[in-house]
């Protein structure tokens, strides 16, 4: 079964490459074949990935959140699934290529880091842990998507300001839409992160005897939460518009990278599972 899952993971990578290539060719060359087929490739990629996650969960008997291979795969899936919903519900096209690029990078890493390890700590197999980690991962995914839309906003903004009416001008949706997508993703991220924090606060003290509110990961997560909460409130109150909001989303991306990687430097964190 391990080798089958490994083969399926490689097969999945092939579909990610196929989807990415079709979105790339459609974006750059306007080829009619890819205009119609890219969504089919993306749908198949999502379907295979879903089957892969179900099989993996069934095989491991726990949420696939216990090592880098599983986490990268889950993030990659959540990005393409979110984008597929956006394209389907809003008919906003032209941004898929950039989100798929991120998913592809994560999926490549997932293939290289493939490791089937059913013998994980019992705590990692618990349902509250699964919910806590899943919502935290999904929230960071949403913040990343928000940052990607912010970068696209920035590219289009630069094109318009510098009178370059090229590929970005012709292919990307308008600035207001990109700003809205970035803000919506950011808001969803904040809601998910709040859920992850609430589950954590309720459940972690009883699950971990060495729990501490001064844990670097908890502090960095609170900083991320406060950062986004302040930004979203300012936007709602009408203080953040256009480029200011976009700058905020991009800074947020750097912050979550720091928040994810920073605690690894502290070996005494109860949040570190090897």
């Amino acid at each position: 079964m391990d080798s089958f899952i490994n083969i399926l993971n490689l097969f999945l990578l092939l579909f990610y490459i196929l989807s990415f290539t079709s979105y790339l060719l459609d974006f750059k060359n306007d080829l009619p074949f890819f205009k119609n087929s890219k969504r089919i490739f993306l749908f198949l990629t999502i379907l295979i990935h879903l089957i892969f996650i179900v099989l993996l969960t069934n095989e491991l008997k726990h949420f696939p959140i216990t090592n880098k291979f599983e986490i990268f795969s889950l993030i990659s899936f959540s990005i393409v699934f979110t984008y597929f919903l956006i394209e389907l519900l809003t008919d906003i096209k032209g941004t898929g290529l950039f989100l798929l690029a991120l998913s592809l990078i994560l999926q490549v890493q997932s293939v290289f880091l493939f490791k089937m390890n059913p013998n994980v700590l019992p705590i990692l197999k618990s349902i509250p842990m699964g919910l806590h980690v899943s919502t935290a991962i999904l929230s960071y995914t949403a913040f990343s998507i928000s940052a990607i839309y912010a970068i696209l906003y920035f590219l289009l903004y630069k094109s318009i300001k510098s009178n370059k009416f090229g590929l970005y001008f012709n292919k990307l949706p308008d600035l207001e839409i990109l700003e809205k997508l970035s803000f919506t993703a950011m808001s969803i991220g904040l809601v998910l992160l709040s859920i992850a924090i609430i589950i954590g606060i309720i459940w972690l003290p009883s699950a971990f005897p060495n729990f501490s509110y001064y844990d670097p990961k908890i502090i960095s997560t609170f900083i991320v939460w406060i950062f986004y909460a302040v930004g979203i409130s300012r936007k709602e109150l009408g203080y953040l518009y256009g480029k200011k909001l976009i700058r905020f989303a991009i800074i947020g991306l750097f912050l979550i990278i720091l928040a994810s990687m920073g605690p690894s430097f502290f070996t005494n964190s109860f949040h570190t599972f090897g």
């Binding site: 289009l156 318009i160 001008f169 949706p173 308008d174 600035l175 207001e176 839409i177």
Partner: peptide, 9 residues
């Protein structure tokens, strides 16, 4: 057309 690339609503 340029305005339409800045605003949508």
């Amino acid at each position: 057309k340029v305005i339409e690339k800045i605003f949508s609503h």
